[in-house]
């Protein structure tokens, strides 16, 4: 436990001093509020761009708050996940490659403390950023598009937060397994690209954790939670446990790969 405390403090200081605690929350807030604002002002924006023929009346379909939440989540699903893949795929791999990990590995290091300190600190940062960002989004959606169910809003936050946990856990596993470049590439595949094609190739299997994003959006758009959602959540939790456990075992195995 004391090793975990020491290593968590180190991760915390690192994320503060590398300004991750500044730029990631700001970007997540921007991602959340840009969607409702640009959608709301789209008619004015198009008009001021001057492409409209004289007298044409521009009619956009009326958007519901649920739909706007869906497209805000879409922002996190793309740019948010890209940020996770790029900024967190080096957590283990980079330390091993640049040699800073040697100093840890020659000590009686607890590998579970090592991995869990990185995992928990990164999640703290990402989940806090997401909750603040989506709340800012909710404020604008309420202001511009009207009322929405608070219960469903919290449900959406819960489901999408679980997806963030899954995404980070897979990224961490890639980082434990591979060198920095490969870890980044595979993370992008797993958490940015694969969710896009999951609906196509795993169409008839409704329980993949890659569908959590869709479930979160559907919940907000009005669907009641069903058994598929609960199964997906259970499998996602299992996947997280597997990823973290494997990361710990692999961190130990990869001692020989540590640059001296």
């Amino acid at each position: 436990m004391s090793q975990f405390t020491v290593l968590f403090q180190k991760e915390w200081k690192e994320s503060v001093r590398s300004l991750k605690w500044v730029w990631i929350p700001i970007v997540f807030i921007l991602l959340g509020i840009m969607e409702p604002i640009t959608t709301y002002f789209l008619p004015q924006i198009l008009e001021s761009a001057g492409n409209m023929p004289d007298g044409a009346v521009f009619q956009l379909p009326e958007m519901t708050p649920g739909q706007i939440f869906g497209s805000a989540l879409g922002q996190y699903q793309f740019i948010g996940m890209l940020i996770i893949a790029f900024a967190f795929s080096g957590l283990v791999a980079k330390e091993r490659k640049n040699g800073t990990a040697a100093f840890l590995y020659v000590r009686p290091l607890s590998y579970s403390s090592y991995i869990l300190s990185k995992w928990s600190n990164s999640l703290l940062l990402l989940l806090a950023s997401f909750v603040v960002g989506i709340s800012a989004s909710a404020y604008y959606i309420h202001l511009l598009f009207g009322e929405f169910s608070l219960a469903k809003f919290f449900g959406m936050i819960g489901i999408y937060s679980l997806w963030i946990v899954v995404a980070l856990s897979m990224t961490l596993l890639m980082s434990a397994l591979f060198s920095p470049g490969i870890a980044t590439a595979l993370s992008i595949f797993l958490i940015v690209f694969f969710p896009m094609i999951d609906g196509l190739i795993l169409r008839y299997w409704p329980w993949t954790p890659w569908k959590l994003y869709s479930y979160a959006a559907m919940l907000m758009a009005g669907d009641a939670p069903n058994a598929d959602l609960w199964w997906t959540i259970a499998i996602a939790v299992l996947l997280v446990i597997v990823c973290v456990t494997l990361s710990i075992l692999i961190a130990k195995k990869r001692a020989a790969k540590v640059t001296l």
């Binding site: 730029w23 700001i26 509020i33 840009m34 002002f41 004015q44 001057g50 604008y140 511009l144």
Partner: peptide
């Protein structure tokens, strides 16, 4: 076009501009 610009409620858009500016400033 000028009319369209004044139509935009700047109080709503200001946070975006402010946050972008902070991001840029911190990076610089």
């Amino acid at each position: 076009m000028e009319a369209a610009l004044t139509d935009i409620p700047w109080a709503l858009v200001a946070p975006i501009i402010l946050l972008q500016f902070i991001l840029l400033l911190v990076a610089l």
